[in-house]
Nucleic acid binder design. Structure first.
Length: 426
RNA sequence: GGAGAUGUCGCAUAGUUGGUCUAGUGCGCCACAUUGGAAAUGUGGUAUACCGGCAACGGUAUCAAGGGUUCGAAUCCCUUCAUCUCCGCCA
């Protein structure tokens, strides 16, 4: 959500944001409603003030009856205005929730991902002296999963990791969490069951009608709860309605949670293997900071993800996502993509996003500035730290040997009991 | 899930026969005074949002949330939510 004052004063900037982000331009409708809402507020408030004044005179008045009648009459007028006000305010509110965040000037302008720009490439994809196996073959031959069995028990797009690969997943997660803790992140294990409103407050969805998320979010039948797609959603609301102390910023969280996605629009894509599943585990970096710290924090959490790529010895690249690709609530976004030998391409492992004050307005998360005493909305940012099992795919594919075994990156070996290799025994 | 209790301005509390409650007090915090400096003490201040106004300032709303009764609600009624205690169930 944007600041209504900003929209009033900069309608052209907002219109442009709608255009480059591919969202409908509703600015004129919104501003017209805004004018009417303010008129009605002024009218009702003036009348209420008058009524309050009369009510206050009643207890001491000698002749109460005329005052009571007068107050009652004003009350009826107010009720009529209030009805229109409530209606117009709800409409305004809905439009306010349909205005996208203004993209950063640095973001490439374009309608979709084809306009994305590669900004950095690290490492070189390995040249294999044997035919590398895709993830599913490595999983099969090492007994690291049981796809048919699990599909039969639980349905498709879910997985079970077995044996050493499951251990490796734990090692990766522990490595990442420890690293983030050492960098001043507060580790938090987040719930996955939440209220729809909480998801809405993260600003991924437009408008005021919560049912729009039914396509993407698993609702829990016969309850008012749903399954969260990421810990970002929970952490985003962690300081809702609070006024934080400037000295406590930036607040950095590393949130772990199981993540649930319907993947409704992905039918038929990535059906094999473990890259796209309904349920996975993720550690998310999430930062609350002053708006002027936002760029610095963006670099910080982006670098953390890059460091993980390097620790896992993965060739990777960083993308600057275009305005049309970055989504409704974002100022700027950088995907980090690792090399997937089986696909002969780079593929997203994490996504670093600056949200500005967009989410903070929805959650009402603010801080008090020491120097001025002013209360301001915080800026928020989020980035994947590690998403599992997807991140295991480039690790096993890039580090595989001809016999199907997989070398463990040095950084992870301490978390694997000193082992240097897994699999390949069959 | 069953029974009961509670939910007030950062924290702790007063206020529940509806009307100077524009919510009192204590603590905390800020400023000033006092002091060589500090403690202690004293005085004053101490919310947020929105509307109007160049501004000073004025107004409206907020006593968990929403609705209702009333000329008037922190106080009465209804609904929801949260917390606590006991029971049930259970990792």
């Amino acid at each position: 959500m944007l600041d209504i004052k900003f929209i009033r004063e900069n309608p052209d900037i907002v219109k442009n944001a709608c255009a480059v982000k591919n969202f409908p331009d509703i600015v004129d409708d919104l501003l017209a409603l805004d004018v009417r809402v303010r008129e009605l507020k002024t009218i009702t408030q003036t009348k209420t003030a008058e009524k309050n004044k009369i009510s206050k005179e009643i207890p001491t008045a000698t002749d109460k009856a005329p005052l009571i009648a007068q107050s009652k009459a004003i009350g009826e007028e107010i009720a009529a205005d209030m009805e229109e006000l409530a209606e117009k305010e709800a409409a305004l509110n809905d439009l306010m929730h349909r205005v996208p965040q203004i993209p950063d000037a640095s973001a490439p302008v374009g309608a979709d991902e084809s306009a994305n720009v590669e900004v950095k490439r690290v490492g070189t994809p390995r040249t294999f002296d044997f035919t590398p196996r895709p993830q599913w073959e490595l999983l099969d031959m090492n007994g690291w999963w049981m796809p048919e069995k699990i599909a039969g028990i639980c349905g498709t797009r879910v997985y079970a990791l077995c044996g050493e690969l499951a251990e490796l997943a734990l090692a990766v997660q522990t490595y990442v969490v420890q690293k983030l803790i050492s960098k001043g992140f507060k580790y938090i294990e987040c719930p996955s069951i939440t209220k729809p409103q909480t998801i809405f407050n993260a600003g991924h969805f437009m408008g005021s009608d919560l049912s729009v998320m039914n396509n993407d979010v698993f609702m829990l039948a016969d309850t008012d709860r749903c399954l969260a797609g990421t810990a970002e959603i929970i952490i985003n609301s962690l300081h809702a309605d609070e006024i934080l102390n400037e000295n406590d910023l930036p607040l950095k969280y590393a949130g772990y949670s199981p993540c649930f996605r319907k993947e409704a629009g992905a039918a038929g894509r990535d059906t094999r293997g473990i890259v796209r599943v309904h349920q996975f585990n993720k550690v998310e970096q999430y930062v609350f900071c002053k708006p002027e710290q936002s760029d610095e924090m963006h670099e910080h959490i982006l670098n953390n993800l890059c460091e993980f790529m390097e620790a896992f010895e993965l060739p990777y690249r960083v993308i600057a996502n275009s305005t049309g690709d970055m989504g409704f609530n974002k100022v700027k976004m950088n995907d980090v993509e690792a090399w997937f030998p089986s696909e002969n391409s780079y593929r997203e492992l994490g996504s670093c996003s600056s949200i500005g004050q967009f989410q903070a307005r929805r959650t009402n998360t603010r801080y008090r500035e020491n120097a001025t005493g002013e209360v301001k909305y915080v800026a928020t940012l989020n980035n994947t730290a590690i998403a599992l099992p997807r991140a295991l795919v480039p690790i096993i594919e890039n580090h595989q040997n001809a016999d199907g075994s997989v070398n463990i990156p040095k950084a992870l070996q301490p978390y694997m009991g000193g082992r240097t290799k897994i699999g390949g025994k069959h």
